[in-house]
Amino acid sequence: MLETLPYSNAPVPVDLTINGQLHQLAIEPRTTLLDVLREHLGLMGTKKGCDHGQCGACTVLLNGERRVSCLTLAVSHDEATVTTVEGLATGDELSPLQQAFLEYDAYQCGYCTPGQLCSAQGLLHEGHARTRDEVRELMSGNLCRCGAYPHITDAILSVLLTQQPTP
């Protein structure tokens, strides 16, 4: 079948700028962004909780938007910019969200946390969450089996309120 088509499953060149650093990769078409991060680049901060888009643990920012990296084929995003949990802080200085998670104890085992942080960063960027209910709904793509939800919501609200001037 394949012989008659102009396709090949050989590795494809893909350029990705991850946390500010350009990576020029050659990857099989089937490689997910999550596996690029973990298996190819050893960036283990992004977690695999389900590998099927059902938990949010693998959430990263792709060109600034939050995505589940486990259902994202990297080949399809040549030249994209990716931010993972490793790229949120500035040097030793935690981002406002990271700091709020620390203060509000918005985590327990920490396994969902990289995904929660990237998702929350995306949520702030999107600008559609203005109420507690909206934060809860728009963070529902990130499961936390430790049940830290009320603290996660509080932490995000605290950043939402301190970053955006109330009229």
Partner: peptide
């Protein structure tokens, strides 16, 4: 915009030490 009625959530147990491994969990 964010409604004025939305209040800054109180920080839980303000005097308690925060998780010592917290930074590691928050930075990946």
């Amino acid at each position: 915009p964010v409604p004025a009625s939305l209040e800054l959530p109180p920080v839980p147990a303000p005097g308690s030490p925060r998780r010592l491994e917290g930074r590691d969990k928050l930075t990946g």
